[in-house]
Structure formats: structure tokens, C-alpha cells
Amino acid sequence: MEEMQQPQSQLFIQDLTSEKRAAFYRKTYTHLALAVLLFVLVEMVFFQIEPLVNFAISLTQGWTWLLMLGGFMLVTNYAEKMAVENHDTTKQYLALLIYVIAEAFIFIPLIFMAMYAAGEGGFHILSQAAIMTLSLFTGLSAIVLLTKKNFSFLSSILTIGFFIAIGLIVAGTLFGFNLGLWFSVGMIALASGSILYQTSNMVHKYNEDQYVGAALGLFASLMLLFWYILSILNRN
């Protein structure tokens, strides 16, 4: 009896030829760039809908902020599972779309603060945060792509870190204390670790047909990094 072979579409990236790996990386980063562009476009549309902006801002106070974060985490978990556990490209695209829209909504209060509380300097803050985020993201991604090092060992560290962060956010919201600058710095470190982990997954974990799912994982880490860099710049 002939040995059953894994279908070509199910091959892991590390098992492919260098040409096919390069094609997978191009598709992944192209979809990441498209996700960022879609995020910007959706955000612009959202800011044209004043009731939606007011509603999002109203959710930042007290326990309603926890509900908003909880809803966002549920959407994130659903979208990531749909993207990563599916080999159906249509479902992966749907998951990416859902996630981008959810990110655009939760970013409304933070961008509002940057654009309106900072006055004319709002756009400068956003562009500065974007440049810093992309620079750090590029550097971290290059480390993985050039060294081919497997950063899967970061999984447990990131899980513990995110649970601690969620606990601090909940405590800060319920008891009314400001988490401060160092919390944002710690979250930037956590987001940086997540970028290393997600890029490593792209190199070692995904199948050839999961470039949309890989892009979603990278997009999630990129936006987390952008959130806390922008949060720090908003303090100035």
C-alpha cells in the first residue's frame, strides 16, 4: 500500500520550496497591508457618523468599558479561530473583515483623543505613532525572517502576560486608578513579543493556504503595538 501523502494545500510553510515560501510571505504581507488600509478607511467612515462616535466614547467610562473590552475579546477570539482553523479562504477573509471592523470601532475613543484633545497636533501624533509602530514592527519581523528562529516558546509567556494585563485593566476600571506610563511600556513589550511569536508562526506553523489567517495574527499584534504607542504619545 502506498503511503498517504499530505495534500499540497495542507503542507506547512517550512516544507515548501523557497519559491513557494516567498510567495506565501508576499501574500501574507500584502493582506496585512490591505487590512491596515481597510482599517484606515473604516475609521474614516466611522468618524463621519457622529452618533457612532459618541456611542463609542460613552463606553469608555466605568464598567461599560469592561463590557466593550469583553465584547472585543469575544469577537477577536471568534475571528482568530475562524481564520486559523479554517482552510476555506472565504471564511478567512470574513474573519479578517470582522476583526478589522472591531479594531476600528474600539480605536474610536483613542483616535478621538489624539485628533481633538490635541487640537492641530492630533494628526502629527497619529503619524508619529504610525511611523514608530511600523518601524518597530519591521525590525522585529526582520529578526524572525532573517534568523528563522522559532519563537513558539513565547506562547506561555504571552498568555500569562495578557492575563495579568487584563487583571490590571479590570482592577483599574473598577477601583478608579490610572495604570500609568509603565503599564503602557509593559504592553509595548508584550506586543513586541506577540509580533515575534506571530511572525514565527507564519514561518513555521501555517499551511500554504492560510496566508489570510497569518495576516490576521500579524495585524492583531501590529494594532496592539499601535494602541499603546499612541496611548503614550497622547500623554504628552
Rank of each mutant, 00 (worst) to 15 (best):
I125D: 11
A56P: 00
V100Y: 04
L146D: 11
A102Q: 01
A142T: 10
I131F: 14
A56E: 05
Q128V: 09
S141R: 11
P51V: 10
M113V: 07
G139E: 10
I98H: 13
T147Y: 14
Q92E: 13
N150W: 10
M68W: 04
V40T: 13
S135D: 03
F55W: 15
S135K: 04
T133K: 00
S141E: 07
G71A: 04
H124I: 14
I125Y: 04
A35E: 03
T133R: 04
G122P: 01
A117W: 12
L126E: 09
A35S: 15
A130Y: 14
Q128H: 06
P51E: 07
A142S: 05
L69F: 05
A118Y: 00
I108Q: 07
G122W: 07
I101E: 06
K149C: 02
Q61Y: 06
L59G: 03
A142L: 15
F137K: 09
I111G: 00
I98N: 13
E85H: 11
A102Y: 03
M113L: 11
L52V: 15
L134K: 05
A118M: 08
L67I: 02
Y78C: 03
Q128P: 03
L145E: 08
M68G: 00
M44V: 15
I106T: 09
E120N: 11
M73L: 15
A130V: 09
K81D: 14
M68T: 00
L34Q: 11
V53H: 02
L136Q: 06
F137E: 01
F72C: 07
S58G: 12
L66K: 09
F105W: 08
F112W: 09
T64M: 08
M115A: 02
I125V: 14
N150Y: 05
M115W: 01
G139R: 09
I108F: 07
Q92A: 10
I98K: 11
S141W: 02
L110R: 15
M82S: 08
T76W: 13
M44Y: 15
G119S: 14
H87A: 07
G139D: 10
P109S: 08
T133E: 07
L38E: 03
T90C: 06
I101A: 15
N86F: 04
K148A: 07
M113K: 03
L74A: 15
A79G: 06
K149I: 12
T64C: 01
A117S: 14
F39Q: 06
S141Y: 03
N54P: 03
V36N: 05
A102M: 04
M68N: 08
A118L: 10
T89H: 01
L66N: 04
S58E: 09
L69D: 12
V53E: 07
A104D: 01
P51Y: 10
L136K: 09
M115E: 01
L67K: 04
L126Q: 09
E80K: 11
N86G: 10
L67S: 06
A104N: 02
I106G: 06
A83D: 02
S127L: 13
M132N: 11
F107E: 02
K149N: 08
Q128T: 14
L38S: 06
